[in-house]
Design a protein around this nucleic acid. Structure first.
Length: 728
DNA sequence: GGGGCTAAGCTTTTT
DNA sequence: GCTTAGCCCC
């Protein structure tokens, strides 16, 4: 424990790790040892400065990062790690709220956490109740308004500028009331209510200010205003705030992240020391130089240039595919080539894309070639209907106020309680001033309910209350078993093996959780007085598919560029480098090109040795054929770092997806034959003095006088005489 | 009340 | 092209 682990650090890293008191901003470029800095610093604080682990708070961006960090720190300081506060903003706030939320009026301790889906459903319900059927106001758009407001600490009363805002305000207001009634918090509430707690209860704030002597924040560039507020409040007493980030990797602006948090850090926190980590240990020189050039097109950033002493490495490969199928084929073929090499295995390879839908074609191809793969993120395990159903039962058992979950399961499996009956139940609840769940118990004595239906309701009510008492004396695994049997859900699963497997997996997760909980005495549960079931549901609510990703099994990893942040792979593919996809259509429209550029930057800098980029000349968007052009970002990567290969062949013929080698920046394809060595074919990359790089769509005639239809990345489609074109 | 069909909307990214 | 929500018929 007393080992000084600074031997393997460079001087800038050492300076950061052993920084004393006061605020510090570490601008850590990609691959510069960011995680290492934080883990070593925590070990340093505990081991050398003798700070008690419980007085250290470390905030990460994902649960996975938190777990990884715990693992690494554990290797340095052993089981002292257990009492550190490490987690995402959401999980740390949850932990605080579990202990303290009862200090706020109207909040109960065993609250349920509503995820995105629950949120949308509740908003819809509120809109229906308020009779809002405006086409321009979708539940989604209202959700983003509400989330945005909570991220900035605004309430319903802050929307009154115009009629539109008035409507948002009404929905927001009712939505909040419904949440309180259900004893539920949404994702944003976890942060928002924590700030409210700190503002309204100074003594509570003071306790945590005193507790957290040292605060460390990873991925600081992606913090939003509430998160900033939390950090600001908590660090006010000791002022030992240590943040690490890279403004070039800020990619969560759409979720309210404010890049000025990192750009203005030294203004916000006086006497800040700044350290730049610019030496990259991950990538080849080629990859770094290409990435540097790309990102230098952004205006809003700290000046920072990564350098490396690694080898120059291979050029980046670019392939222009004929269509998505061809793109996938190319990726599959290259993976087989790479994986055949001695130095690489499947797990050293990753495929990144901008949108989740892009994984489909790739999946098909990998299946066809029997290449093992794993999709990280996307429609996750916890999103599956059967998993949500079982969890909804558990949630109702843990918190019978949770109306959203009750509505979900009241007729699953079908037990004759339909829409009409639920409406009558609502009336009973309103009339008696009780919750929907309690109305179930009153239904037998209510004359608005037909006798037969009342029996069904009574039976369901008894079922749940029976399960509630069962849960008091039994573990979660047993409870899940019991739920499946007593509710008849097992019969649904009988016929669907895939669903059965998923529920089985949930059972395993519960068993694992119980084992973990019993292994160590659990101080947290005692302090907050929560139950094991509640704790399990909390954990599950914050869990994401990304967390379970590990690189132990030999599989190719598929994920979005967003999910790729923080990871590294020897070989990476980034597909769909096209206008309207990367940069994405919506971002172009909203003028958020810089964030899109950072997204590609994140993707490029994940690679250690080899990068493959692809774009396609055809793509199905919403089931319609589009002819995308290569991304403008491609032109920002200097030609010297790229070897391009363009699919050659008839665009209209389905077969024969042969590809010929060519050099995008320099040489003409060898195979071409023409009087002057200049013949053109659809699909080819060319360059025009004024319009820049483009792709040939169509050729009429031959030789220099041919009329060529070209699609340019920046100027759209033009018809041009061949002699004005340069073959690339 | 339940099940099956059609139409509309959808996809940016996630704690 | 795929999924969900709402409608209609049994």
């Amino acid at each position: 424990m007393n080992t000084t682990p600074t031997d393997n650090l460079n001087s800038a890293q050492k300076e950061a790790v052993s920084h004393g008191k006061g605020p510090m901003l570490v601008l850590a470029g990609a691959g510069s040892g960011k995680t290492k800095i934080i883990t070593e610093r925590i070990a340093h604080l505990v081991g050398t400065e003798n700070i008690a682990p419980r007085n250290i708070l470390a905030v990460t961006f994902t649960n996975k990062a938190a777990n990884e960090m715990k693992g690494r720190i554990n290797g340095l300081i052993g089981n002292l790690t257990r009492s550190l506060w490490i987690g995402t903003f959401h999980s740390v706030c949850l932990r605080i709220l579990k202990r303290e939320i009862t200090n706020l009026e109207g909040f109960g301790r065993d609250f349920t956490i509503y995820d995105d889906g629950d949120q949308i459903k509740l908003i819809k319900q509120c809109m229906a109740e308020l009779d809002i059927s405006d086409r321009t106001l979708t539940p989604r758009s209202i959700r983003s308004k509400i989330d945005g407001a909570k991220n900035k600490g605004l309430g319903p009363e802050d929307f009154k500028a115009d009629a539109y805002e008035e409507t948002v305000s009404k929905v927001y207001d009712l939505y909040e009331k419904e949440l309180r009634k259900a004893n539920a918090l949404d994702f944003s509430d976890l942060l928002h209510i924590t700030v409210r707690l700190f503002n309204e209860k100074p003594d509570v704030l003071k306790r945590y200010q005193t507790l957290f002597q040292y605060i460390l924040v990873d991925e600081y560039q992606d913090t939003n205003p509430v998160q900033y507020k939390i950090v600001e409040l908590l660090s006010k007493k000791h002022k030992n705030l240590f943040v690490v980030g890279d403004d070039n990797q800020s990619i969560y602006g759409w979720r309210g992240a404010d890049i000025t948090n990192i750009l203005d850090f030294e203004k916000d926190f006086p006497d800040t020391r700044i350290i730049k980590l610019e030496r990259n240990y991950r990538s080849t020189k080629t990859i770094l130089e290409a990435s540097n050039k790309l990102i230098s097109n952004n205006k809003h950033r700290h000046e920072k240039d990564l350098w490396s002493e690694n080898v120059q490495g291979d050029p980046i490969s670019y392939y222009l595919a004929r269509n998505e199928k061809d793109e996938a084929k190319y990726v599959g073929a290259q993976i087989q080539l790479e994986a055949a090499k001695e130095e690489f295995t499947y797990k050293s390879i990753a495929i990144f894309y901008r949108t989740n839908t892009q994984s489909r074609q790739i999946e098909e191809e990998l299946l066809y070639r029997s290449i093992p793969y794993r999709i990280v993120g996307g429609i996750g395990f916890y999103q599956r209907a059967e998993v949500k159903d079982v969890l909804a039962y558990l949630r109702v058992i843990a918190n019978s106020q949770d109306e959203m979950s009750l509505r979900r399961i009241i007729n699953v499996p079908a037990r004759g309680i339909g829409k009409g009956t639920i409406e009558r139940l609502e009336k009973i609840a309103a009339k008696n001033g009780v919750l929907l769940f309690d109305a179930l118990g009153l239904s037998a004595r209510d004359n608005t309910i037909p006798k037969g239906t009342a029996v069904k309701l009574e039976r369901f009510y008894k079922l749940i209350t029976g399960l509630i008492s069962f849960s008091e004396n039994n573990g979660i695994g047993e409870l899940i078993d019991r739920v499946l049997q007593k509710t008849g859900y097992l019969d649904i699963l009988e016929k669907e093996p895939e669903r059965r497997e998923n529920v089985g997996e949930l059972f395993n997760i519960a068993a694992e959780f119980e084992k973990e909980g019993s292994k160590e005495d659990n101080p947290e549960r005692d302090e907050s007085g929560t139950t094991e079931l509640n704790e399990f549901l909390d954990r599950v609510s914050l869990a994401s598919d990304l967390d379970t990703y590990n690189d132990k099994t030999d599989q190719v990893a598929l994920m979005t560029l967003h999910s790729a942040k923080g990871l590294e792979f020897p070989v990476t593919f980034i597909i769909g480098i096209e206008e309207n996809l990367l940069p994405h259509f919506n971002s172009i429209r909203e003028g958020e090109i810089e964030e899109e550029r950072r997204l590609l930057y994140v993707g490029l800098t994940r690679a250690k040795e080899k990068i493959y980029l692809t774009s396609s000349s055809r793509r199905l968007v919403f089931g319609k054929e589009e002819n995308p052009t290569p991304s403008r970002f491609l032109l920002e990567i200097p030609e010297e770092f790229i070897t391009a290969q363009v699919h050659q062949g008839d665009f209209n013929r389905a077969s024969g997806s042969r590809a010929k080698k060519s050099n995008l920046p320099s040489k003409a394809p060898v195979q071409q034959s023409s009087s002057n060595g200049k013949s053109y074919k659809a699909g080819q990359q060319i360059e025009h003095k004024k319009f820049g790089l483009g792709t040939i769509r169509n050729v009429e005639g031959s030789g220099d006088s041919a009329k060529v239809t070209v699609h340019f990345a920046r100027y759209g489609t033009k018809k041009i005489i061949a002699s004005y074109l340069e073959k690339k």
